[in-house]
């Protein structure tokens, strides 16, 4: 069964009229069907939507929303819920002023992938009626100005949805129709990391150099990241001396992205937003996912922040050198 935006809106309205919240943070339709954007609804719900293009993670907006009086209802997809939980754990949000409504997710669609298929003038998306298996293998009917096109759903899902292993919400006040969530995982979460690990070191270096050189320092990755929530980012703090250091290097993006990866290391919730929002299509999530993989392998932690936790069974630094040697 398809997730209907109106059903979600109906639920939202009921919750607001029941006094659960004073305003709603959700997504709004844009000029085209595919350019939805995060939006705060205070008086009416004009433009409200929850559809295949609502990929943006809303949890970070709660930092400011929860400073306001009253309560904000926020729509949270399963992958967003981990970010919200982290923000709560790090005391970045006032959880009492948030009503987190978990909404189902069947994977979100990457417009760029549709375009790569040569499809233009998209005006809407429907699911093929015959195939409603709910396992993500169905086809989509892309409605365009030039007629319908049929495309397998998995071929146009965001990469972050294809590597999504979290179909269950955590820490939401209420989860609505979770049975509509679909498994979109392609079973290849760490393939990208493994590929880079297996590169010889100079090839790996030039891979990252070519990728990171594309960076235009728009800060979109930082701004969208639910983990990058410092009151004042170290790169914005003139006193830290870091910003000037990054600029003085002929390859400043290296420093920026590597420091950022270290700062979110052990905290990253792997929501994949950094890569999704990057206008230069830098696979930033691979840096974070490498840390996730290493932490899992070396320390066995998945939930605890690895860099803040110590147990006697933790890997000794020498293990890392050994691994490094092997992978050179």
């Amino acid at each position: 069964m398809r997730i209907e935006s109106d059903i979600i809106l109906g639920k939202v309205k009921r919750l607001v009229s029941d006094g659960k919240a004073d305003r709603v943070f959700a997504w709004k339709k844009g000029n085209f069907c595919y350019d939805t954007e995060p939006s705060l609804f205070t008086d009416n719900y004009v433009g409200f939507t929850y559809d295949d293009f609502c990929a943006a993670n809303l949890c970070k907006f709660m930092i400011n929303e929860s400073k306001k009086d009253g309560k904000t209802l926020v729509l949270i997809k399963p992958c967003d819920s981990k970010g919200l939980a982290l923000l709560e754990k790090e005391h970045r949000i006032n959880r009492e002023r948030i009503y987190a409504l978990g909404v189902p997710c069947a994977g979100k669609i990457d417009m760029d992938k549709i375009r790569e298929n040569g499809v233009k003038g998209v005006i809407g998306i429907e699911e093929e009626k015959e195939n409603v298996s709910c396992n993500g293998d169905e086809n989509l009917i892309i409605k365009t100005l030039y007629g319908d096109k049929i495309i397998p759903k998995k071929s146009v899902l965001y990469d972050k949805c294809l590597s999504c292993t979290d179909k269950e919400h955590v820490g939401c006040d209420e989860v609505f129709m979770p049975e509509l969530s679909e498994d979109t995982y392609d079973g290849k979460k760490f393939e990208g990391v493994k590929k880079i690990e297996n590169m010889p070191s100079d090839e790996r270096f030039s891979f990252w150099r070519s990728q990171l050189s594309k960076c235009i320092r728009c800060n979109a990755c930082r701004n969208v990241c639910p983990v990058c929530s410092c009151v004042k980012c170290i790169f914005d703090n003139d006193n830290s001396g870091i910003a000037s250091k990054a600029n003085s290097d002929d390859f400043e993006e290296n420093l920026y992205h590597i420091i950022r990866a270290f700062h979110v290391c052990g905290r990253c919730v792997d929501c994949g937003e950094c890569s999704r929002v990057c206008p230069e299509k830098i696979p930033l999530h691979l840096l974070n996912r490498k840390y996730i993989k290493d932490i899992k392998e070396l320390y066995g932690y998945e939930k605890e922040p690895a860099l803040l936790t110590f147990t006697k069974s933790d890997a000794e630094p020498s293990v890392i050198y050994e691994r490094g040697e092997k992978n050179v």
Binding site: H91, R92, V231, L308
Partner: peptide, 21 residues
């Protein structure tokens, strides 16, 4: 205090329990 986000990282790593909020 102007820069502190109150994330508790420092409290968690302090071996002496010297940090409070």
């Amino acid at each position: 205090s102007l820069i502190c986000s109150g994330c508790s990282n420092c409290e968690k790593v302090c071996p002496f329990g010297a940090i409070t909020y």
